[in-house]
Nucleic acid binder design. Structure first.
Lengths: 215, 215
DNA sequence: CACTAGATGTCTACGCTGTAGACACCAGTA
DNA sequence: TACTGGTGTCTACAGCGTAGACATCTAGTG
């Protein structure tokens, strides 16, 4: 009867399944098999599958390392580091990304990170609403990037991706050029830093103008 | 026997179902019911459900209005307008957003938009890789925003969202403040324009420095 | 020590899903 | 008129999440 089933065992087994075989592979039956236990056993610890998914999201979120950010560095670097930590955690479990995007980006587990980011930016003189926008953008972008990475890995049952060879150069000259330069599928991660740099630029300008009007 | 079933009828019925009742409501059986036809009839026109979903994505993409962009305006405005068109199309069908995020952001239907955006930015002196990054960011952010909007509408089967009343102010002072200011759930759409403005700023600076080194 | 109450794992079963395969019919061509 | 290919229908299968009954093991109480 294997009396020792716990929420943590279920969560980590679930995460293992998702990491190895993708999100669609995570069924309650598969989860049971993975732990050598009846599928229904999970329901003694988790009232439904949704809760299990929340738990998986929380597990990934808990891997984000906020302590590694050096508070002595300029706020711009801190923000960049935080964004990178976030993306890194997600990219470690790309198949979880759809869950993160779907189940709100601010589930309990990520509150810690959000608070940290707010702190960095407001101390730098940013307005709360701008800081929130920046955070949302970082979260959404990271989730999107990870999701794209996940989708690229899984064949995704009969969908026609990868038209690399077959896009008509007449109609799409620039796209063709970009594809040939490899700018399409590569460097999706650069998108985040590009966007973050952009938002930092805006925050800098705004903070400066506020400081100027204060004097 | 209703001899007149077409791919378009199936696609538009599917989109109607998704818009009204969410993505999880779209089953082949439901699709059949919607059209007063046997569930299996759809398989005469679409080899599997994945193709149907691709078709739905394409339908939404086709609603993006690239012609409405005024070429006489400065490129910054054009880019902003394009981003807004993209988001608007997605927000018209928020429940489709997960599909768009999952099935690559550059399915056939959106190539047109991507090419247009590339054109705007390269004519303004941007490098192709930077332009691609900007486009990816716009696409991912729009999809993320729409997805968040979709998730907020659907109760999402037993997940604990909306901790508005119950987040401990001691631990999360800034978050609490932001929540009280309503900066959390409102204005997700502002996130896109904030990020776009940021990336425009970066593109401007880069273009300027390139022009300077040319002389 | 005996007994009980609760927690936990197991089993069966229901209605849902996508879709394979056989069948029935109808339109157009030879 | 006979046939052929396209289309809609029907049945069936394996898989899903999970409700509800049952069995068993553990801890606490007298």
């Amino acid at each position: 009867m294997a009396r020792g089933l716990t929420r943590e065992m279920l969560t980590s087994a679930a995460l293992r399944i998702v990491d190895n075989d993708g999100l669609q592979a995570l069924s309650m039956r598969r989860l049971g098999t993975e732990l050598g236990v009846d599928p229904m056993a999970a329901y003694r610890h988790l009232s439904n599958k949704g809760i299990l998914l929340d738990e998986v999201v929380a597990a990934v979120m808990s891997e984000i390392d906020t302590e590694a950010i050096d508070a002595s560095r300029p706020w711009q670097d801190q923000l960049r580091a935080l964004a990178l930590s976030y993306l890194t955690a997600l990219m470690a479990h790309p198949h979880v990304a759809p869950l993160i995007a779907e189940r709100s980006l601010r589930t309990a587990g990520s509150l810690r990170v959000v608070e940290k980011a707010l702190q960095i930016m407001t101390e730098a003189g940013a307005q709360l609403s701008d800081a929130m926008a920046t955070i949302d953008a970082i979260g959404l972008l990271s989730a999107g990037i990870a999701q794209a990475a996940s989708a690229a890995q899984v064949p995704a049952n009969g969908t026609a991706r990868d038209f690399s060879g077959l896009l008509p150069p007449r109609e799409f000259p620039l796209l063709t050029q970009a594809a040939e330069a490899g700018a399409l599928s590569d460097g999706l991660a650069d998108v985040l830093s590009f966007a973050v740099d952009g938002m930092i630029a805006v925050l800098e300008v705004k903070a400066q103008s506020i400081r100027a009007s204060d004097e």
